[in-house]
């Protein structure tokens, strides 16, 4: 079980790997599309890498609800519980 801080750090690493964005730019209140400029293809890659890293399943229909980094952290934390 990862803490929310650990999930955020892990997610920031995945986002950095995919987009080159600095990990510290990946903050809880940031929108994936509006703030981080992540397109839908990159988002799906990030989702699949997060599934593998955190051992969770993020259904496709759930992805559209993950607007901010915080949404993703909360979903992953909930899915791990």
């Amino acid at each position: 079980m990862a803490s929310n801080e650990e999930i955020l750090a892990g997610l920031a690493e995945i986002v950095n790997e995919e987009t080159g964005l600095a990990p510290e730019a990946v903050e809880l209140d940031k929108s994936f599309t509006d703030d981080l400029d992540i397109d839908s293809i990159s988002m799906m890659t990030i989702v699949v890498n997060a599934e593998e890293k955190f051992g969770v399943r993020i259904p496709d229909e759930e992805v559209k609800n993950l607007k901010t980094v915080g949404d993703a952290v909360n979903f992953i934390a909930g899915a791990q519980a």
């Binding site: 839908s40 293809i41 990159s42 799906m44 890659t45 699949v48 599934e51 593998e52």
Partner: peptide, 10 residues
């Protein structure tokens, strides 16, 4: 199939 990258086609 879940692990096939979305960038595969382009």
């Amino acid at each position: 199939p879940r692990r096939v990258l979305p960038m595969t086609v382009p």
